[in-house]
Amino acid sequence: MLNVKPLEERDYELIKAAEEVIEKNYRYERHHIGAAVRTKTGKVFAAVHVEANIGRITVCAEAMALGKSISEGEHNFETFVAVAHPHPHENIENCWVVPPCGMCRELISDYGKETEVILPYNGEIVKCNVMELLPEKYRSEF
């Protein structure tokens, strides 16, 4: 069972930033996930994932938002969120929050073990520490 926290108003603003970036840049079979990160200084960076014909080289939206933040000199992260945009053939009107994939969990934790992640859990949208999602994290040293 995860140790979760309820969302604050600024968490909903972070979700909105992720929704806005994917709604603006959605392209079928190219970009359908948007992510946003809030840094410890309160700045928000949002980006979309970059789909590739060879799935292995696709870059997740969380990684893109992280890179965008670092490129702007922000290296300390507070909270991440990702949202999915509905495809034209789906009978869904709005974006929805999705949990980070395993690689993104590793990446986020590499850049801050205290970072929180917003995700769906037990029918609610909540946040928790990234390490809750990554027990026994990989380490190169023993």
Rank of each mutant, 00 (worst) to 15 (best):
C128A: 10
T115D: 02
V81Q: 07
H87M: 07
K43H: 13
H75C: 05
E19T: 00
E23G: 02
H87V: 01
P6T: 01
F80T: 03
L66C: 04
E132N: 06
E106Q: 12
K5N: 09
R139V: 06
I57A: 13
T39C: 11
S69A: 15
N122V: 01
G73Q: 11
E74F: 09
N76P: 00
E51K: 05
V4Y: 14
H32R: 14
L2A: 08
R10P: 00
V126S: 05
R56Q: 05
K127G: 08
V81K: 08
I54W: 15
I54K: 15
R139L: 10
E136K: 12
E72Y: 09
E23H: 05
H89C: 01
P120Y: 02
K68L: 15
N94D: 13
A84C: 08
E124M: 05
C101A: 05
L14Y: 11
K40M: 11
L119Y: 02
H85W: 02
V126M: 06
E74R: 02
R27S: 06
A63S: 07
E20F: 03
K40D: 10
V21Y: 13
V50H: 12
V44D: 10
P135V: 07
P86C: 02
N122I: 01
Y138M: 11
E93I: 02
N94S: 11
H75L: 09
K16L: 06
L14D: 09
V117G: 08
Y26M: 13
T41H: 14
H31I: 06
V4P: 00
N91Q: 13
I118N: 03
A47K: 05
H32W: 14
A82N: 04
E132R: 07
I118M: 09
G55S: 15
E114A: 02
V126Q: 00
P6V: 00
Y26W: 14
V83W: 06
V126E: 06
S69D: 08
A65M: 11
N94P: 01
Y111E: 00
I118D: 03
E78H: 10
R27P: 00
G102H: 13
E124W: 06
L14H: 11
P88R: 12
E74V: 07
G73R: 10
I54Q: 15
I54L: 14
H49P: 04
H87C: 03
A47W: 01
Y26R: 10
V130K: 12
N3V: 05
S69H: 08
A84K: 14
T79A: 03
S71N: 08
A82H: 02
P120M: 03
C101H: 08
T41C: 09
E132G: 03
V4I: 14
E20G: 03
K40R: 15
Y12F: 13
C128F: 04
A17R: 15
N3E: 13
A63T: 10
K24W: 04
N122W: 02
E136L: 03
S69R: 09
E106P: 00
A52V: 09
K40N: 12
E62V: 06
K137Q: 13
V4G: 02
V44Q: 08
V44S: 07
K127W: 04
S109Q: 02
E141F: 07
E90M: 13
N129A: 00
V37Y: 02
A47F: 03
T115I: 04
G73L: 12
E116H: 14
C101S: 04
E20P: 07
A46H: 11
Y121W: 12
V126G: 11
N3R: 14
G67S: 13
G73S: 10
Y26V: 09
A17Q: 10
